[in-house]
Design a protein around this nucleic acid. Structure first.
Length: 418
RNA sequence: CGGGGAGUGGCGCAGUCCGGUAGCGCACGCGGUUUGGGACCGCGGGGUCGCAGGUUCAAAUCCUGUCUCCCCGACCA
């Protein structure tokens, strides 16, 4: 993408109505636009990050055998009344409206009920399971107070997966596989070192659920981490009894603030029984289906990554989810410089390397500041100076390291062929 | 939902106490000088001061109501 064609602009002014670092930087860099409190639009660069995160998540979900679909945002009152989660007393984050004829409808804050109800059409035999389905869905939640930028909004994108199994053993095998896949996702998003599998409240159905908590000062949760065992316990279930159960020693635990980037649940058969999802086994007897639910806050994850890696110059994206792998900065309009820069741009984009080509008629300082603010992992400069030196100037955003490289090394860095 | 703070060109702010023709920086347009870390000079365009009432000869400024935004807390499968 040529930056002269990009409609968004960076700004030096920090937005006054944001204190969350992630939102400040994402707005300054032109990645997102704030529509109202807790509601953000994703502009071209931000959308690229979002799509990259989705790509990673999708690959891992498909690897588990998950089948992608998209449920609806408008939901039926009667369905949620079956599980007693329609009333505002029980669920206080509903957005509700009604059809022209007066029929109440809700805007989806979760999809457990609709998706499980829908699966009744397709699961009737033990031969139909195990099966898992997932979606990337915009969730709407009428939070009393929005905060933390895109880490907690009223409208956000979540990947939610649901698994249907015939018994606890089958369910547990899948649950464990999801756990591993989740850890790989956070690893690929660059947060592997600081993301912990965390024991958390299991709600009404099981004793524990598992959260994936990323250590972050701006996080909203308190957890106790055992860094050597790579496990943690959420403060909400932090008792001697629980520690004993999960095999953690109080003396090994450290209290930290963290952001919940994922959460997985076992529902057992309770919800299936409520909604009437049964299968027939080999003996012809009817059994309730074992349900699991697995969420990742996609937009929150983007916010956490932004927040965690940012430095005093701006955003810093890990290569796998960056809006571009490289930003090609062309200085001046000397015909030879233009020629070399155009050629490099064409060669890289021809190999599907995502390149931001800064061919704007601007001063070097502004271009460098923009490249830093946008957080593109690699920056290559082509100018009269680099031509005289006979090498490309390559800067690594994260470390700040600058070096002269030849074509071979440049392409190797970008995992491309010269 | 309780407490606190704030709404003034696209963005960031001053002006409000003490009423008298709305200003600065960034961004934008034109001209010029610059040109490897957010340059400089000159000229220029752009704002019913959140909204609705009220007081007054006169309201960004005073009064009443209302909406929105931010922070702390509470809440949070």
């Amino acid at each position: 993408m040529r930056l002269s064609q990009l409609f968004t602009k960076t700004t030096k002014n920090v937005p006054a109505d944001e204190t969350a670092r992630n939102a400040q930087l994402l707005i300054q860099a032109g990645f997102i636009h704030k529509e109202m409190a807790g509601v953000y639009a994703y502009l071209p660069l931000g959308l690229r990050v979002l799509e990259n995160i989705k790509r990673v998540v999708r690959e891992e979900m498909n690897g588990l055998g998950g089948q992608e679909l998209i449920m609806s945002s408008l939901q039926r009152q009667e369905l949620w009344e079956v599980t007693d989660r329609w009333s505002d007393e029980n669920v206080d984050i509903w957005f509700k409206s009604e059809l022209k004829n007066g029929t109440p409808i809700g805007f989806g804050w979760s999809h457990e009920e609709p998706i499980t109800d829908m699966m009744k059409n397709f699961i009737s035999s033990y031969r139909d399971v195990p099966v898992s389905v997932y979606q990337f869905q915009t969730k709407l939640r009428n939070e009393l107070r929005a905060k933390s930028g895109i880490m907690r909004g009223r409208e956000f994108v979540m990947k939610d997966m649901y698994s249907y199994s015939r018994n606890d053993e089958e369910h547990q095998a899948f649950y464990d596989a999801v756990t591993k896949a989740y850890l790989r996702i956070f690893e690929r998003a660059g947060l592997g070192d600081i993301t912990y599998l965390t024991f958390a409240s299991g709600g009404a159905f099981t004793q524990f659920s598992h959260e994936f908590q990323t250590i972050l000062e701006a996080g909203e949760d308190i957890i106790y981490v055992d860094k050597s065992k790579k496990l943690a316990v959420n403060k909400e279930v932090y008792t001697d009894e629980v520690l004993k159960q999960v095999g953690l020693e109080k003396s090994e635990l450290e209290e930290v603030k963290a952001a919940e980037v994922g959460n997985i649940f076992s529902f057992g058969t309770a919800k299936s029984e409520q909604l009437g999802l049964y299968l027939t086994d080999e003996t012809g007897s009817k059994q309730a289906v074992v349900l699991g639910s697995y969420g990742i806050g996609v937009t929150r994850l983007m916010g956490v990554v932004a927040e965690h890696f940012a430095d005093d110059r701006g955003l810093v994206w890990p290569v796998e989810i960056a809006p571009a792998q490289i930003i090609l900065v062309r200085l001046g309009d000397n015909p030879e410089v233009v020629k070399q820069a155009d050629e490099l741009y064409n060669k890289l984009t021809g190999q599907s390397v995502a390149v931001l080509y800064d061919e704007r008629d601007m001063r070097a300082g502004e271009k460098f500041a923009d490249a830093d603010l946008m957080g593109i992992p690699y920056r290559v400069v082509i100018s009269e100076k680099t031509q005289a030196a006979g090498a490309y100037e390559l800067k690594v955003r994260r470390s700040g390291e600058v070096k002269q490289v030849g074509e071979a090394e440049l392409f190797e860095t970008l995992d491309a062929k010269p």
